[in-house]
Design a binder for these strands. Sequence first.
DNA 1: CTGGATCCTCAACGATACTG
DNA 2: CAGTATCGTTGAGGATCCAG
Lengths: 225, 225
Amino acid sequence: MTNQRYGQFCGLARAAEIVGQRWTLLILRDLSVGPRRYSDLLAGLPGIPTNTLAGRLKELEEESLLARAVASEGERSIVYGLTPRGKELIPVLDALSRWGAGGMRSPREGEIVTTASLVAALRVAAGDGIAPKAWNTRYTIRVGDVEINVIMRDGIIMVGPGAAEDPDLVITAGPQIRDLLAGELDAVTAIKSGAVQLEGDPMLLERFAEVLRVPYSPFAPVSLQ
Amino acid sequence: MTNQRYGQFCGLARAAEIVGQRWTLLILRDLSVGPRRYSDLLAGLPGIPTNTLAGRLKELEEESLLARAVASEGERSIVYGLTPRGKELIPVLDALSRWGAGGMRSPREGEIVTTASLVAALRVAAGDGIAPKAWNTRYTIRVGDVEINVIMRDGIIMVGPGAAEDPDLVITAGPQIRDLLAGELDAVTAIKSGAVQLEGDPMLLERFAEVLRVPYSPFAPVSLQ
DNA sequence: CTGGATCCTCAACGATACTG
DNA sequence: CAGTATCGTTGAGGATCCAG
């Protein structure tokens, strides 16, 4: 499977030959959350053909963006994880993610939220990952049947898949969570309108919305000059 | 021409639907240098089929990343230029470019340097675009038959296509210019080895190499954990 | 000459079935 | 669970042609 080449001695062209292939960016996004098995990736990327996934994983391994490893002793299952070279790409994925989110308003027909997409979105929203030191809070965020956690601890924000243990606040929302992160919907309105449902202290949603904030640039079609 | 979709309500997925198509990133790179005509783009992207270019331009216009305009009064030619939404993508292109450059060593068989690729590379190398205020210098850089200019003025670095007017230094080099920017080749060695030829004060190359510097991360294939 | 449109071919992608 | 195998479909590649 010889990658298509652009024939230019250019960093962007080289990058495009790798990440410009269909599904590759989403595979990398899923792996950016943590090492995953083949079947995890397949489940997190609805619509990807199995041969395409297998081919991409092989190519990305050849490019040293990811490595395969046996999950644990005795297990037959294989996990794929990003190498340092692959991890270098995470800030770029996040920048692209932020740009793409600026063009999003509401889900199109049939669009879903996956665990990795929600983790990536909140990782972007967390920005530099710094919160006030005193805010030690554990959040679980539910969108559909997806659950992720956001932990603020000692001034650091961590985002990961799965519910938080003993959460201080459980936030259940639909795609409108995007508007909350975008600052287009404030916490009070979100609660009143029913856009989010809470289990726990509602004040903790204010902190959440204050720290996890994507300053999407306003997007208006314009003409040149 | 209905774009392939990923079916996920995710910024990265939306971005990938647009910029993940073949040739799109390079078209945007060329336009990031400035507005260009159809034939300029065709010439700067050797190998692109005309129908692909036409199709991409149409899609990118629909997505409001670029706009078409009549070049100047009376002219029949059309120029394509980035909209603000398209320009928001330039820092992302630069980040991707930098990442890709980290995996580059020497040109592969048949790889060429184009005007836009060289401008983009030096724009990345210029980083935040700041130089010492006293360094008012005009450079012309030649690689093959490509000529671009780098102007340092009042602490600002500007990079553009075409030779500089009345340059203080003309730098002629091959692909080894990449090593100079990467800091893997210092100015003195570059001159002695003949990797670069100069017309003007050789000391000005030191300034050039000092300010235009891409801190590529070392790249070594490794295994997981 | 610029700015495409058309046609044909072929490699890559997509869907499904199947296997060690 | 982790992929191959098979086969149909789509989009890219390449050449040519055409209108303003």
